[in-house]
């Protein structure tokens, strides 16, 4: 299956102790699944795009703290985080404009569906997903910027590894 060994499998010298790495390896999937659950079920249960996005950002932050900045930047580079952040913010502003076709801005024009179903409530799950992407990307990027102090850190890390 896997041709080259992943950093997550090997207990390399980078990052924290093997205890932390093992616990993070177990908890990682649960954290990301919980974040996506909070985002996708935001119109049915407490939560929503912002809370789920912060949970996902916490997942990436834990990965970065436990396994070192190289793995965190490989999973979500700061350039990629910028692009996701901008695209999601733009979509959140543009998609409500399609409401002008049926009436006014922020009109809930999609099919409402049956209440208490996952695919219901028209546009609201869509907006939740946009906000979730935006918050995840921007908070992880701000963590990287605050902890490593550099714009587009992935390029700097590559240069350090090469030179």
């Amino acid at each position: 299956m896997a041709t080259k060994p992943d950093i997550m499998i090997s207990d390399g010298p980078k990052g924290m102790t093997p205890i932390v790495k093992t616990v993070v390896r177990f908890a990682m999937g649960i954290i990301f699944m919980f974040g996506w659950y909070i985002i996708l079920y935001g119109h049915l249960t407490p939560g929503g795009g912002f809370a789920g996005g912060v949970i996902l950002a916490c997942g990436y932050v834990i990965l970065t703290l436990a396994f070192g900045k190289e793995l965190g930047l490989r999973k979500l580079s700061d350039m990629g985080a910028s692009i996701i952040d901008n695209t999601a913010a733009l979509l959140f502003a543009v998609v409500p404009m399609f409401g002008f076709l049926f009436g006014w801005y922020f009109l809930n024009f999609l099919d409402k569906g049956r209440p208490f179903q996952l695919f219901s409530a028209g546009n609201i799950p869509l907006y939740n997903i946009f906000i979730g992407f935006k918050v995840t990307a921007s908070l992880f990027a701000i963590f990287m910027a605050l902890s490593i102090f550099g714009r587009f850190v992935s390029k700097l890390v590559d240069e350090e590894e090469e030179g």
Partner: peptide
């Protein structure tokens, strides 16, 4: 709105402009 969570229906439907402004502030 068809959303079972009234809070989400308020912040993303009735008060969508507020949430847009909040997203703009974050951005």
């Amino acid at each position: 709105t068809g959303a079972a969570n009234v809070v989400t229906s308020i912040i993303l439907d009735f008060r969508g402009y507020d949430t847009l402004g909040e997203a703009t502030v974050l951005f």
